[in-house]
Design a protein around this nucleic acid. Structure first.
Lengths: 147, 147
DNA sequence: TTCAATTCAATTGAGTTCAATTTATTTTAA
DNA sequence: TTAAAATAAATTGAACTCAATTGAATTGAA
């Protein structure tokens, strides 16, 4: 093996993870001005997205949907609670479980948030076909990562 | 517009950013056991990758390559310095600039690190053609995000 | 020339992220 | 039945991330 080849795999430009990591952070930065408008961070936003769709969900399921563990999700829920957007109830049938629900204000925020995907689409001017391909590959990748 | 459509764009499953964000974190988690073996976090690892390739680089350029600002990169360099892997020198020609270089131990670590990409490849069993496509799309996306 | 604007790196503060631990509750097996 | 194992959520601690600010050095325009 030539010496030049030995370290090629170690170059940033030959990594798949690096552009994933960089693009993820860059695109989340693009969300910021829009999310500032509704007073949410990106993590809080995706948690709210699940709630807008599901109405209510327990902490464990929410974490599974977002690929986040309780160490991350617990403080996120707490801050949403402090903003008056969600409320928590401990389940009667299983006292270990906590279910998160939307308050009236939390439900109302959905209308404001509904404009964000369009604004972002203009901001991330990728061709429709590329975006779809990327979407498919990302879920394929996520699937291979699921142990 | 039907009401059912109004909020469709707000569903997690219709986002491109979410699987990007989730896959990025999941794949970085996969690095952990390997990176633990050389005592680095992922962020420290990619900073070292740049240094292994460039030998030395100033803080600003390093940040640009990694899409990280000084608030992130400064403490990362500091911790690499504390591990004895890099050293900093303030430039004579422009005293504002700090250049980071590899110590002997930092250079030596490259050999151990060189095994990681192979180990990861086995771990992320994606087809070669899919990985290449994903790679291309991610850099395309990164390009559209660059202001 | 000189001083205002810019640049570079570091720091600060709020929030995220995750591994590991803790506490409370439920389930399972002896 | 009861003690051990498992589960859910929260907490802890270390590190990352970024916007904003700070302080030092350089640049540029009047």
């Amino acid at each position: 093996m030539k010496k030049a080849e030995k370290y090629d795999a170690l170059k940033l430009e030959n990594q798949i993870c690096f552009p994933l990591y960089a693009a993820s952070r860059e695109i989340i930065k693009k969300y910021r001005p829009f999310l500032d408008g509704i007073g949410l961070t990106y993590t809080q936003y995706i948690a709210m997205m699940v709630l807008w769709e599901e109405k209510s969900i327990n902490v464990k399921s929410l974490g599974e949907k977002l690929f986040l563990d309780s160490g991350t999700i617990s403080p996120v829920i707490k801050s949403l609670e402090e903003k008056g957007l969600v409320f928590k109830t401990r389940d009667k049938s299983d006292e270990r479980t906590v279910t998160v629900g939307l308050t009236e204000n939390g439900e109302k925020l959905k209308d404001k948030a509904a404009e964000i995907p369009n604004k972002m689409a203009k901001c991330v001017s990728m061709e429709q076909s590329d975006a779809l391909q990327l979407y498919t590959l990302l879920y394929k990748l996520l699937d291979t990562l699921k142990d």
